[in-house]
């Protein structure tokens, strides 16, 4: 791996710390799911950390991000509070949505994170709308939309690309191509030359990179974000990666070729970034300490979440709507 950024080791170490924090968060979320503390669907981001971190390192806090079902890593990278996120996964008071949303509906509007999403590709069209708003309000923010390789076969993805290009909107589509959608190998159900070609057919510049190479992500996104922010119109980056775990925590991914998983482990982003740091001045001890700190930070959040109060049932009735708001308990019955 090579890099041409100034001030590298400190910057890389900080990105590495975020990647490790995401990994610890996801491992802990999976364990909490298996222990029965977290319900629902937990889609882990394990193996893709370099993408969210490399992308968000090049965004401003007021830039927007729309995400999908696999949104924990995107959220942490954008600056959402992992403590509040863990409380949300546990359904407790103090969660990002006070327990209303859960794993698939993490959002933190204070850092421009406009929401994970339970519906594939709906984030694509919403990112176009956020970009329209930016233009209307005369801002120089940009919008980043994360989409999976499976999601590109939904109509809204194609509609959003077309629209973004027609109006030259400040949107960066990041397709995280982990080559699989739930249990389906995506290329078997995807026609044409792939995601980049699809974007190019709309006249949109597309760049394909190794998403597990933090430096390549960082470098490419830095360039593309600068182009978009200065009025260059939308672009797409296809970040090649690999989903190291099952589709969600309760999927053992028995459909996967073990040799393929082995090979992917050799390319996983944390070890690669770690190797670079070791060659560039960080000691093994420092790395061990950094990882231990991330783990203990996350374990602290888990312990807190286990003991945090449950929300009162009344809360289910707030924030539905202003006009005609429901009242508790069934007062209109």
């Amino acid at each position: 791996m090579s890099s041409n950024l100034a001030n590298e080791p400190a910057r890389v170490a900080e990105m590495f710390r975020k990647m490790v924090l995401i990994r610890s968060f996801e491992e802990a979320a999976g364990e909490a799911f298996h222990a029965g503390h977290v319900r629902g669907s937990v889609h882990q981001y394990i193996g893709q950390e370099s993408i969210a971190v490399g992308v968000c390192a090049n965004l401003r806090e007021d830039d927007y991000l729309t995400s999908n079902h696999r949104g924990h890593g995107h959220s942490i990278a954008k600056g959402a509070d992992p403590r509040a996120m863990m409380l949300e996964l546990f359904g407790r008071v103090g969660g990002t949505s006070d327990g209303k949303g859960g794993s698939m509906h993490i959002a933190d509007f204070s850092v421009g994170m406009l929401g994970a999403n339970g519906v594939i590709a709906d984030g694509c069209t919403m990112s176009v709308g956020a970009a329209q708003a930016i233009r209307l309000l005369g801002d120089d923010k940009i919008v980043v939309n994360f989409i999976g390789d499976g999601g590109i076969n939904r109509g809204p993805f194609m509609e959003a690309l077309n629209w973004a290009k027609v109006y030259e909107l400040p949107v960066l589509f990041i397709c995280e191509n982990n080559q699989i959608a739930a249990t389906t190998t995506t290329h078997l159900v995807t026609a044409g030359e792939g995601i980049a070609a699809r974007a190019e057919s709309f006249g949109m510049p597309a760049t394909t990179i190794d998403g597990n190479d933090l430096f390549e992500v960082d470098r490419t996104v830095a360039r593309v974000v600068a182009e978009i922010r200065t009025g260059g119109g939308p672009q797409l980056i296809q970040a090649m990666t690999y989903r190291l775990r099952g589709h969600f925590a309760h999927d053992e991914a028995g459909y996967r070729d073990l040799a393929e998983v082995e090979a992917a482990l050799g390319r996983e982003p944390i070890a690669r970034t770690e190797a670079w740091l070791l060659e560039n001045g960080m000691t093994a001890d420092e790395i061990t300490t950094l990882k231990a700190e991330a783990d203990s930070e996350i374990i602290g959040y888990v312990e807190e979440a286990m003991n945090a109060p449950w929300p009162d049932g009344k809360l289910a009735f707030s924030d539905v709507q202003d006009v005609g708001a429901p009242s508790y308990p069934g007062a209109d019955q």
């Binding site: 949303g101 509906h105 009162d312 049932g313 289910a316 508790y328």
Partner: peptide
């Protein structure tokens, strides 16, 4: 059900 989206957390879901 009350006219609310289905919430995630146990006590909130129970309230629905």
């Amino acid at each position: 059900g009350e006219r609310i989206p289905i919430p995630f957390s146990v006590p909130l879901e129970d309230a629905y």
